[in-house]
């Protein structure tokens, strides 16, 4: 199987490498090995996300103006949006997790949009990245649930509104769905971003054929627009699901 993606074996003259854009390689020595401390393209684009966040939230708001400047009002809108989301979905007592959720939301949002810059590297398309994010949410929610409610947190799996006969079965289903959460949570984000980038790359491959290249370019444009939407929506969905899980942890009763 190792030879299937070798360029020589591609048929029809079209060369697709839709996944090459996701390869992690060292930034300064592309042929070198990737150790855990190596500065790679992942590092670069993660750092750019940090730079963008600092630029918006620290430099943009440094005026502390009563009538906000443009960048300050963007920061305020994002702040207010996230705050309201946490308050509405997770409840008033979840406000102390607001900085945590804001961090996740801002990181995913900025990474998604930075990944849409042509020739960039989409950090959130990697299962390693989204898996860590989802696992962090999963662990936080589980720990918070047990610390807040003790054994009562297990009531999340005991559907007291269902008939007694069904409850053990439902408990098993709930338990499985609880442990599948981090998987679906991470793959939803990573898969969406990866799918969008891969599809764009496939259409870029079609653009090499003169006859269909106008169609390919138009398609790339359209899909790029769709990906702009998806980048925002997936960040929003990841965050709001985090809020929903947090609500489950704080109020486990069904």
């Amino acid at each position: 199987m190792a030879t299937e993606a070798a360029p020589g074996e591609e048929t029809g003259g079209l060369v697709f490498h839709p996944l090459d854009q996701f390869i992690v390689k060292p930034l300064f020595n592309p042929e070198g090995a990737v150790h855990w401390y190596t500065i790679t393209n992942v590092t670069l684009w993660l750092a750019l996300a940090v730079v963008a966040i600092v630029a918006l939230f620290v430099l943009g708001t440094r005026g502390r103006a009563m009538v906000p400047s443009r960048s300050q009002s963007i920061g305020e809108v994002l702040y207010g949006f996230t705050y309201k989301m946490v308050e509405d979905v997770a409840g008033k007592d979840a406000i102390k997790f607001f900085p945590y959720i804001m961090t996740l939301f801002m990181f995913i949002l900025f990474s998604n949009y930075l990944g849409l810059i042509p020739a960039s590297f989409a950090t959130t398309s990697h299962i390693a990245v989204t898996g860590v994010l989802a696992l962090a949410v999963f662990l936080t929610v589980t720990i918070v649930g047990f610390v807040k409610n003790g054994v009562g947190f297990l009531g999340l799996f005991w559907v007291s509104s269902a008939p007694l006969v069904l409850r053990p079965i439902l408990a098993i289903i709930e338990l499985i769905s609880y442990f599948v959460r981090p998987v679906s949570h991470s793959i939803r984000l990573g898969g969406n971003i990866m799918a969008g980038h891969a599809v764009m790359k496939v259409f870029a491959g079609f653009a090499a054929v003169a006859a269909i290249s106008p169609f390919a370019v138009l398609s790339i444009t359209a899909i790029y627009g769709l990906e702009m939407l998806v980048a925002g929506v997936q960040a929003y969905v990841f965050t709001i699901l985090t809020c929903v899980y947090l609500k489950d942890a704080l109020h486990p009763s069904h």
Binding site: I187, R188, G191, N192, Q234, V237, L241
Partner: peptide, 12 residues
């Protein structure tokens, strides 16, 4: 959005 995300995830 949550509903769309759940449906979308399975396609992904």
């Amino acid at each position: 959005f949550i509903g769309i995300a759940f449906a979308e995830a399975l396609g992904i």
